[in-house]
Design a protein around this nucleic acid. Structure first.
Lengths: 205, 205
DNA sequence: GTCTATAGATCGATAGAC
DNA sequence: GTCTATCGATCTATAGAC
């Protein structure tokens, strides 16, 4: 019952590593990089501090490993969202809807975004991992969609995709991350309606 | 030459206070909240640590005073930008242009935005000060402008204003704060063109 | 009011036993 | 590999001299 004290078998291959990553994620998301101590990471992971150091070298190495893993996870989620099919009016509406509902309600995602921005000064490479693995693929999918539907009459698909996703993400940042919904409330549906309205404004109807 | 050792006159009313605020801003912008020590603030301000504490109580009080001051300064700058006059096409283009050029090139403003987002989890009130003093006034001016020009045929000025400013701000966040311009470069002019295109899409031309 | 000096806690990182 | 114990530095905050 109590965990094997281990002697030879070494059944716990990457077991402690995952414990550490999980505990570290918890602490970094809660307190940011500078605000997180290695003692607390070790405690949250249920291992000793020395074990943490033996696996990840130092605090920065642990943080980098953590963010890369999270970015890949988020990458998957968002790419599933952005698989377009059907009429433009419906596709665009659904994309905005899913982003606003899925992301805005996901507290961990919110906190993750906050942390990436927070540490983007000291850790530019982590921000770039985020851009490369999350922002860029979603943007590219949308650009491709807009460009392959000439009936929409969009003069610059790349810029339009930026406007579309930028509006949605910034809405989430203001309402959720910066707690703006208590000060400037605005229904998600109205954002969705207006976004699709502008995107379809050039269509022949 | 050397500063008066002071004995009675007390010419330095809020002199040290301003020194402290200046030094603190420097340190907080460079290292974030948790990453900044009161020793370094005192050193950067050229005063003793005890003096810092006597004026601002504790670290959080100092941070709050700092952010409130910055918010008011930013508020002024952005409100000057958002004073609309003239034809819609030109007014909107100029607003986007000024925001993109003025804000994107202002390293201090970039860093300030990063810090506000970074600390918005632990210090929600600071984020709210930012929203109330900066985001809200600019948003309101734009809403008022859009609403008072019915020839633009904008169905929901509040949502449209969000889209306009959200696109611009998120563009700055991705390109500048998250270092995205090295990965997804995009000319500001194309953003401006597309933004005005969408906003004017309902006008009778 | 402003300083020096320091208390008391916590930090990142490591040595050494097992 | 993983642990305990600890080092030396640094942290926030304060006491006491001037």
């Amino acid at each position: 019952m109590a965990r094997a004290k281990s002697s030879s078998v070494s059944e716990s291959a990457g077991e402690k590593v995952e414990q550490i990553l999980k505990g570290a994620m918890q602490e970094f998301l809660a307190h940011g990089y500078a605000g997180t101590s290695m003692d607390r990471v070790a405690a949250a992971a249920g291992v000793s501090k020395a074990t943490v150091y033996s696996h990840f070298g130092d605090k920065e190495g642990l943080f980098a490993a953590l963010v890369e893993g999270l970015a890949k996870k988020r990458f998957k989620i968002l790419l599933d969202i952005a698989s377009p099919a059907g009429e433009a009016k419906i596709v665009l509406r659904q994309l905005a809807e899913t982003l606003l509902n899925q992301v805005a309600e996901d507290a961990e995602h919110i906190t993750f975004m906050r942390m990436i921005i927070a540490e983007s000064g000291r850790f530019p490479n982590l921000a770039k991992i985020f851009i490369r693995h999350i922002t860029l693929p979603v943007l590219e999918k949308l650009i491709q969609y807009l460009a392959s539907h000439p009936e929409l009459n969009i003069p610059d698909p790349e810029a339009a995709a930026r406007i579309f996703l930028g509006s949605v993400v910034q809405f989430i940042i203001i309402q959720e991350i910066l707690h703006g919904k208590e000060i400037i409330p605005l229904d998600k549906e109205r954002m969705i309606d207006s976004l699709t309205h502008f995107m379809l404004s050039g269509a022949g109807k």
